[in-house]
């Protein structure tokens, strides 16, 4: 269902041992033509909800730039920020909320202005067939159902709590998952009767997860900022990747996965 899972472990080990990776060749031979001579590895730390869309962005970008290897490091935006703060050699940071990018900017980790590249909204996600008979946000107060959200501090968790607060629902939770993909997996397996995820996650699960719309006056929009990092080992590669995300081609890939244009 989700081949990205094993890939994540590989990516993490790359992060852990990439400390020795040299970026010297990138600084030689600057032709001036954007994108013409970028080479080497570009390490992109991206929010877990971008998993599927960025896999396709990676493929398209690598096809346009032979010799470039985009490596995705996917996870909760907060832990990605912590890795960057602790010196992980990351080139690009694509977070699921402005807060983590702003904190990174305050710590002097971001180069230039972060750009919003996509939007997303929330949906109530239930397993195929809706075994818990969930009808909407009110179900999250039902102690007889198995319910989960993302943990507090993770964008999808904070946004979901905002939506529940607007609806006046005090949730009776069974689990707080570390990122949206972990939450989605437990819904997919039928362990949870309902959770609140991004619309794009429900779409990515194919038919195995059903999404229930949240009324527009209660829903929140998630804005995804992307930024080149101040200590990027491959700054020109990072620039090119961000430009690609903001290009028509990049945006059309994202909208195919259900992200809104911003």
């Amino acid at each position: 269902m989700r081949p990205q899972r094993p890939a994540r472990a590989v990516v993490l080990s790359v992060v852990l041992c990439a400390c020795g990776v040299q970026s010297a060749p990138d600084n030689l031979a600057d032709s001036g033509a954007p994108g013409a001579s970028i080479t080497g590895m570009i390490l992109v730390s991206a929010a877990a909800s971008l998993t599927d869309a960025f896999a396709e962005v990676e493929a398209a970008f690598e096809a346009a730039h032979p010799g470039v290897d985009v490596v995705l490091n996917l996870g909760g935006s907060g832990s990605l920020r912590t890795q960057i703060l602790e010196g992980a050699p990351v080139d690009v940071f694509a977070s699921a909320d402005m807060a983590d990018t702003e904190k990174a900017a305050r710590d002097g980790l971001v180069s230039g202005e972060p750009r919003i590249f996509a939007g997303n909204s929330l949906q109530v996600a239930v397993p195929k067939g809706n075994p818990g008979g969930v009808e909407g946000l009110e179900a999250f107060a039902d102690p007889s159902l198995r319910l989960g959200l993302c943990a507090q501090g993770v964008p999808c968790g904070d946004l979901a709590r905002t939506v529940l607060a607007r609806a006046g629902v005090v949730p009776s939770l069974d689990t707080e998952e570390p990122d949206v993909r972990a939450l989605l997996t437990k819904i997919e397996l039928g362990e949870l009767d309902a959770g609140i995820t991004y619309l794009t996650d429900v779409a990515s699960a194919g038919g195995s997860v059903w999404g229930l719309d949240i009324p527009a006056d209660l829903n929140v929009m998630a804005a995804y900022p992307i930024a080149v990092l101040a200590h990027a080992p491959n700054p020109r590669g990072a620039d090119a990747f961000v430009r690609f995300i903001l290009s028509d081609e990049g945006r059309s890939i994202l909208s195919r996965f259900g992200f809104t244009r911003s």
């Binding site: 907060g78 832990s79 507090q152």
Partner: peptide, 8 residues
């Protein structure tokens, strides 16, 4: 693990 996300 969860605290690393918001309060180191």
């Amino acid at each position: 693990f969860v605290a690393l996300e918001r309060d180191r």
